[in-house]
Amino acid sequence: MAGQQPAVRRGPLARALGQMRQNLWLQGVAVSSLAVTLAIMFAYVNLGLNVYAALERLSTGASVMVVLEEDAAPERGAELARLAAAWPEVLSARFVPKDEALERFRQQLGSRSGLLEGLARNPLPDAVEVRLKPGAAPLMVLGNQLKGLAGVAEVVTSRPWLHQLERAADTALEVGAVLGALLFIGVVLVVANTVRLAVYVRRDDLEIMALVGASLGYMRRPFLWETSLQCLAAAMLAMLLVWGLLAYFSAPLTLPLGLETSRILAFNPVIIPPFILAALAAGLVGSWLGVGRALRMKVW
């Protein structure tokens, strides 16, 4: 079989494929260990971005809820919304009738919306949802002013601790970036060690190449190809794995604050291209370092 190879050209990719065919178990070991590592990285970035997006939705969401008195007319609700929208710190204000609120709640519950079937009447009130401009001033004044208006039963605000949430989100982002970098380094190390195994398996061939005068680059190039192909395969596997796990775990469940697990556990296709690039980059760096180290220790 090896004897029938076309003789004229044997570039690094051809040599890589040749040496990969000779050691299929090594490919299995490399791809599976890489896939596991990459899956951890992918799941981490995926979840991290989803949580961050959820926090952002929260902090720009309806941060003030103006609850109307039970007998207030819907027209009064619309009027209050117009009034509130005129204030400078308000981004938008919208009247949400209780039927709409119930329908939204039903959607958030997803498959568990059956829970609502037994209700004799809608327990939710009419309300005006007020969204504030980001970083707006303290709410006490605004809240009190809203509360003084006719037809308003109560003003519920979540803003004070939302500030803390935002700060927490920023810290989490920094911690997350550091952890992400560590995971990247982890992938590089896994690749470097896998490559050293590959070098070890092929030490006899490499010795011969070195003896007839192959440069380090000539010996290294097939390994770079090999690792790239392995990283691509492992990245695909990792994404499949994460996609499967997320699909399995993402039962629709609404957490406090309207955080929905199905959105946090959603597979985020936006990160596929950067993830593949990162996997390839980690593979090339790890392979470069691994082959260099393994070969330099030998002189032959």
Binding site: A2, Q5, A7, R10, I208, M209, V212, G213, A214, S215, Y218
Partner: peptide, 9 residues
């Protein structure tokens, strides 16, 4: 290929 190796490198 074995002989060619010396030339390819």
């Amino acid at each position: 290929e074995n002989v060619a190796l010396a030339l390819r490198v």
